Structures are given as structure tokens and as C-alpha cells.
Amino acid sequence: MSGDSATVRRGRPPQTQEQAEEVRARIVEATAAVFARNGSRGLSVAQIIEQAGLARPTFYRYFGNASEPLHVVLTASNDGLVGAIREALTGTDEPVQLGIRLIDAYVDWARGHGPMLRPLFAELHDPGSPVSAYRERALDDIRDLVRKTFDELDRPVPAPLDMDAALHVCEYIVYRLTAGTEPGSDPDPALDSEARVTMIRVLLVTLGTRDDLAYAMELPGLFRDA
């Protein structure tokens, strides 16, 4: 038997594409778990491979450093939020219903993150964290979606400051509503209802028109009586 043949036989069998994708997904899932515990500054290859139960050479076959799988995690998070809001902004031209659909999309996105939501929100305003840059990209995409939707509905496009105020307030309320809850768990009905009403009021005041507010004033329970 030639040396070349012996080498081929002793070598590791080639991975199928499906096996390679499974390992890559396993690394990304482990990265999300470590990020949820320690944030981006506490992320390391050593912790990822320990979480995934893989050898270091296996990790480096797919990623060059710990930041690369984190970027996969953050990209998926952004795509999920922007995609959900894009879908929420279609199918109705009624302003209150539009606001409710947008809020539901945001809340559902947040609940799907479970413990990963804490470091995501904690690092939103940290310029040294990749989370901050990804958040700005998501907000840019959401601003564009809102402007496009309002334009298509022949409604006044909100001023940039009004739009940012609406997005930031809703972002904070969504965090308050979903932080600490397990994925798939039922929210506190009282807190859920209160949060949604608050967000609807914020969206109406910052993004709505005088006619929208007049309509909303007739809806029971949306604004408190004097």
C-alpha cells in the first residue's frame, strides 16, 4: 500500500454539507448562550467551544474568532425584527390597528430572545459593543419602512425626532415587558395590557395626526378620563 493511500485511509471522512451546517449552527447556538450569560465583552472561543462541546480546531474550521458567530446571532436578531415589522406594516391603513400590529411584532420578537434580551438591551448604547452598530442598522431599516408605509398611505411622514422618540420609548417598554421571561411563557396579563396601551398612546401622539387622536379619544380605555 502506498503512503498516499495510507494517508487517505487514516484521514477523517469528509463531512457532508448537512453535517457541516449542523456543526456551524451548533457553534452559533452556543455563542448565543454565552452572550446571554456574559454579554459581548465576556465572549471567548474557549467559552463557546465548552458550551458547544466541540474541539478548538473544529471551531476554527468555521469561524476565525468569537466575534464572527456573534455577528451571525446579531444579524438573525435584526432580520427577525425588521422582517416582523415589515409584515406588521402591511394589511391595514387604520392608524390604531397599524400601531397595534407594530407593537405585537416588536413584543413577539423580544419574547423570542429569552435571556439574550438582557445583554442586547444593556449594550444598545455601548459604542464599543457590536450590538450598538447592529441596533442602528435595524433602526435605520425600521425608519425607512415607516416612512415608506406612511408615504404609500398618503399620510404625513413623521419628523425624524418624533419617529426616534416613538421607537425609543417603545423599545424601552418592550424591554420592561419581556425582560426576565422565558421564551414561550405567558406574560402578566395586567402588565401586558398596560404596556400595550402605553405604546399605542405614544405612537398616536408621536406619529399620528389630529384626526387619529380624535378617533382614538373615542376608544374606551385608551386615554384616562379627566
Rank of each mutant, 00 (worst) to 15 (best):
G3P: 12
V8F: 12
R10Y: 11
R10D: 09
P13I: 00
Q15F: 10
Q17P: 13
Q17D: 11
E18W: 08
E18L: 03
E18T: 05
E21K: 13
E21I: 09
R26L: 03
R26F: 01
V28Q: 01
A30H: 01
T31I: 02
A32K: 05
A33Y: 00
F35H: 10
R37V: 12
R37A: 14
N38L: 03
G39F: 00
S40V: 00
V45W: 00
V45Y: 02
I48A: 01
L54R: 03
A55V: 04
T58G: 02
F59C: 04
F59P: 03
Y62G: 07
S67N: 15
L70C: 06
V73K: 00
V73C: 06
L74F: 07
T75D: 15
T75E: 15
A76S: 11
A76I: 07
D79L: 09
G80R: 12
V82E: 06
I85Q: 03
I85M: 10
T90F: 06
T90N: 07
D93P: 02
L98I: 04
G99Y: 04
V107A: 08
V107M: 06
D108C: 05
R111W: 09
G112W: 07
G114P: 05
G114A: 08
M116F: 13
L117Y: 01
R118G: 11
P119H: 07
L120E: 02
F121S: 12
A122R: 11
E123S: 04
D126H: 06
P130K: 01
V131Y: 01
A133Y: 08
Y134S: 14
Y134E: 14
R135A: 14
E136K: 11
E136T: 13
R137M: 12
L139D: 14
D140W: 10
I142W: 09
I142N: 09
R143H: 08
D144C: 06
R147H: 13
D151L: 09
R155V: 00
V157E: 01
A159Y: 03
P160V: 08
L161N: 14
D164A: 15
A166I: 06
C170L: 10
C170Q: 11
C170T: 11
Y175T: 08
L177P: 11
L177T: 10
T178H: 09
A179Q: 14
E182H: 10
E182S: 11
D186T: 10
D192L: 07
S193C: 12
R196N: 04
V205N: 08
T206D: 11
R210L: 15
D212E: 09
A216P: 00
A216E: 03
E218P: 03
P220Y: 01
A226D: 12
